[in-house]
């Protein structure tokens, strides 16, 4: 235990000793972590927007004119029997309701509707559903089946459009992941290079610690502690910056959400691991 406290003391002393040379390390890490977390934040919000958007998708079923209420009830019952979990609600509107809804959009339309001798609009059935990517095939086959149902004249289903949207989102996701990976790699290389430069004046000290019988772990521990501190400092700085930018943006986009614990925790652990591994690689250069 006393050895451990001794090493902690050495680590703290290193932080004080390197306070003038460590700032490029902390600054570069701060910038890279800010970009990395910014990408994570953007990715999370794009997915959130997509989910919100797709959860309000709907299928418009245009029914045949003059369809009896029994036939409509039968149709709705048969659809309910299919028990598709993605369906949130079904709303039936008869010809009159549709005409009224059309007329209520503005005064000109209301005047035009008043001139009509006969209601030209058909009854409709609006099916609200959640079009998550994984449920698109079910909904697509459901829409195809709808077309074959008795009393259905047309089905307006935006499945193709959603599929394209999902394809784009998936492409963006892959791009973000590659970018994140590349940035983490850059962070690692930068960390190793700068830490190596920081350690260079201490090479004699490392050699002496080896001569008196210090194991690799013993010699590395104070430097691990030092890099852990720098990583935490950079991470805290990056989070503070992101929070500030996020709060400023939320005035304009109130639905934006900050990084969740599930996103932040692995990112934080990864950054600290990266710093520790980078430190290990940098110190190995000085072992004999």
């Amino acid at each position: 235990m006393t050895r451990f406290f001794f090493l902690i003391k050495m680590g703290l002393k290193n932080i004080v000793r390197h306070r003038r040379t460590s700032w490029p390390l902390v600054l570069s890490l701060f910038i890279l972590i800010s970009i990395n977390l910014g990408i994570l934040l953007a990715r999370g919000n794009i997915n959130l927007a997509l989910n919100l958007f797709t959860s309000h998708a709907r299928i418009e079923v245009i029914l045949e004119k003059g369809l009896s209420s029994e036939a409509v009830s039968q149709l709705i019952s048969s659809l309910k029997e299919e028990s598709l979990t993605e369906i949130r609600s079904m709303t039936y509107r008869d010809e009159t309701e549709n005409l009224n809804a059309f007329a209520s959009q503005d005064e000109t339309l209301a005047e035009a509707v008043a001139l009509l001798g006969e209601n030209p609009l058909p009854p409709t059935l609006t099916i609200q559903c959640v079009m998550a990517m994984e449920s698109l095939p079910h909904i697509s086959s459901f829409a195809q089946n709808l077309k074959k149902k008795e009393g259905v004249s047309e089905v307006i289903y935006p499945g193709g459009w959603f599929a394209r949207l999902y394809q784009m989102a998936r492409g963006a996701d892959v791009f973000f992941l590659i970018l994140l990976g590349a940035l983490f790699l850059v962070t690692f290389i930068l960390w190793v290079s700068i830490f190596k430069a920081t350690l260079y004046p201490l090479r004699d000290e490392i050699e002496i610690m080896e001569i008196v019988g210090g194991t690799k772990l013993y010699i590395r521990t104070p430097f691990y502690l030092e890099s852990f501190f720098y990583a935490l400092l950079s991470l805290a700085g990056a989070l503070a910056l992101l929070r500030f930018l996020f709060d400023s943006l939320r005035d304009y986009f109130p639905d934006l959400r900050f990084l969740t614990t599930e996103e932040l925790l692995p990112a934080g652990v990864l950054i600290i691991l990266l710093a520790l591994l980078g430190t290990e690689k940098a110190i190995n250069r000085f072992f004999k």
Binding site: D204, E205, I208, E210, G213, T215, F287
Partner: peptide, 22 residues
Amino acid sequence: SHRQRALLRQKIGVVFQDFKLI
């Protein structure tokens, strides 16, 4: 291994011409 050598060195005192002090 490096660790075994370190443990061996703990039983050996070494004095150098250039002292090797911090």
